[in-house]
């Protein structure tokens, strides 16, 4: 723990272990332009024309959002079993990232739906599920911010992560009976009906890797930010202790 090592910081210790941040940064610098290029040169969809290209961001963002909430769930279970601060850091980082990526997923999907379905919004089961999931995890963030005591903050976040994650499949099953609203879902389950072929698959995989790298980069940076906050707090208390 940072509080035990008086002036030692847990971050930026040289030679401690491999620093992933520069590696990830260079990989992103290479992958991001590459995936943009692939998105532009990949064949245009017959029915959807240019609007289909937003899928290359939409699908990876949604997958990263599910991945974040999975990491949050695992962090929650681990915190519950061990009560270690490091799992709390993992939980808060992945919770924030999950909300961020699900927001991207909903916005890109909504823009696409405007062209494909002629509406920004329809109560399709998947859309409904993702929306409810976003609301659930937003309320989890609120719960965390409304708590003062650090250890209580961690345990409430952990409990909420476990309950929220288990709730998501139940939400999905319940939306089967949801009335479809005025606008028919033209493509059945979105995504599946649009076949990806040849170079489209390559583009999709490239974008998936880029988004995965971005997710990892954000997660590591967010974890380090939280560790630095711990270090600052530890230094602050150590200094105060000397003055008295």
């Amino acid at each position: 723990m940072a509080t035990n090592t008086k002036y030692m910081t847990t971050t930026n210790v040289p030679g401690k272990k491999l620093d992933w941040i520069p590696i990830l940064s260079y990989a992103l610098l290479f992958m991001f332009p590459l995936s943009l290029l692939f998105v532009l040169i990949s064949p245009t969809d017959v029915n959807l024309a240019f609007s289909q290209r937003i899928f290359y961001f939409h699908l990876p963002a949604n997958i990263m959002c599910f991945l974040s909430f999975l990491v949050y769930f695992i962090g929650g279970i681990a915190y519950w079993r061990t009560r270690q601060r490091k799992w709390d850091i993992v939980m808060v980082s992945s919770l924030e990232l999950g909300v961020f990526f699900s927001f991207i997923g909903i916005v890109t999907g909504s823009i696409w739906a405007r062209y494909a379905w002629n509406t920004f919004w329809t109560w399709d089961p998947r859309l409904t599920t993702v929306t409810i999931m976003l609301v659930v995890y937003l309320s989890g963030l609120m719960l965390r911010n409304a708590t003062d005591d650090p250890s209580r903050k961690a345990s409430l976040t952990a409990a909420f992560g476990v309950i929220g994650f288990i709730d998501v499949p139940l939400v999905y099953f319940s939306t089967r009976w949801f009335p479809r609203g005025l606008h028919p879902v033209i493509f059945g389950d979105n995504g599946n009906a649009i076949g990806l072929e040849g170079f489209m698959i390559v583009t999709m995989l490239t974008c998936m890797v880029t988004m995965g790298l971005l997710f990892t980069y954000f997660l590591i940076q967010r974890i380090r930010l939280e560790q630095m906050r711990d270090d600052v707090a530890a230094l602050f208390y150590a200094q105060e202790g000397e003055e008295y």
Binding site: L143, A146, D167, W177
Partner: peptide
């Protein structure tokens, strides 16, 4: 906070 936490998680049962 209770309604904010409670409503989204309860939605499957409410539906």
């Amino acid at each position: 906070l209770l309604p904010v936490l409670f409503f989204p998680v309860m939605l499957p049962v409410i539906i």
